[in-house]
Simulated scan of single mutants.
Amino acid sequence: MSKDIKIYIAGHNGMVGSAIWRTLTNKGYTNLIGVSSKELDLKNQQAVTDFISDEKPDVIIDAAAKVGGILANNNFPYQFLMENMQIQNNLLDSAHKFGIEKFIFLGSSCIYPKFAPQPLKEEYLLTDSLEPTNEWYALAKITGVKTCQAIRNQFGKDYVSLMPTNLYGTHDNFDLNSSHVLPAMVRKFHEAKLNNNAPVTLWGSGTPMREFLFVDDMAAAVVFALENKLPDYLYNIGTGEDLTIKDLAETIQKIVGHQGEIIWDASKPDGTPRKLMDISKMHELGWKHQVHLDEGIEKTYNWFLENIENFKEVKYS
């Protein structure tokens, strides 16, 4: 693929989008487009239509989304459903309308049923009910996956959906009101360490199992999809390895250097018991993750320390 093809990365300032931008730049791609949310509101259909019509990118990578953990999903179901559908529908419709032949849509492993067999295979999509604590986000992402499939089937375009497991890394969201479990733990253990190693209270029982992928590995998967025409419409992206939330907490605690007590608040929800991805389809094509969890957490914590003054609280309305 030519290094000067025009690639629009929606959400290029976010954790995933910025990692994709870095990876493409490091590989020599020179014609990348990124527009901030202040310059372009992706929820505005006319604005998106005008932007895609004017820029005419060769490829669109959709890394834009409204994201958050259990608390944010529970408190703001309408925003998580509607805003994510608006963003992806506007991008997909404009891409199709203006003849863009390649579109890479990013979702989440939460699209799969709560009690689907483990590890999660792509064909389990829509075979049972979703996990209630994130169903609004999941429903939005499912509509994006099926829209890509519909365009692919009806019009023969190379529209593909990549479903990552839990992502973490540099440029993550460390706001305790809206962050996911790993960055929230990093911040909690760090602040407790500074507070004379005060006890840290964590949600749930600690028994659910989760899989985590460093964001640079996700970016590498996106570039793999960019540079190859994948034969199917949906692919899982992960490590194929998981651990309990308790083990994750103890790993982060050790890396951060917190020496206090961990208290588990079992009155809070655990979420899905287990979410391990079957990543055999991507492995067979030639992609595999590179960053081990301990290494990734160390990189994430170092970035957190370097940028701690810049974190902003996320507001919902």
Rank of each mutant, 00 (worst) to 15 (best):
S2L: 14
S2N: 15
I9M: 02
I9P: 00
A19C: 05
Y29E: 09
T30A: 05
L32F: 00
I33T: 08
S36R: 05
S37V: 01
E39V: 08
E39L: 09
E39P: 06
K43T: 12
Q46I: 07
T49G: 08
I52C: 07
I60L: 12
V67I: 13
G68V: 07
G68N: 14
A72P: 11
N73K: 05
Q79H: 15
N89Y: 14
D93N: 11
H96G: 12
K97I: 07
E101F: 03
E101I: 03
I104N: 01
F105T: 01
F105I: 00
A116L: 07
A116V: 09
P119T: 04
L120V: 08
E122G: 10
L126F: 05
L126T: 02
D128A: 15
L130F: 01
E131L: 06
P132H: 03
T133K: 11
K141M: 06
T143K: 05
N153A: 08
N153D: 14
T165C: 15
Y168D: 13
Y168C: 03
T170M: 10
T170C: 05
D172V: 00
N173E: 11
F174A: 07
F174P: 04
S178P: 13
K188H: 07
N197Q: 09
A198I: 05
T201C: 05
M209S: 11
R210W: 12
E211H: 03
A219M: 07
F224L: 01
E227A: 06
K229N: 13
L230H: 09
L230W: 07
I237D: 07
I237C: 14
T239Y: 02
G240S: 07
A249R: 07
T251H: 11
Q253H: 08
I255D: 02
Q259G: 08
G260S: 10
K268I: 10
P269E: 10
G296H: 10
I297K: 04
F304H: 02
N310T: 11
F311W: 14
K315F: 14
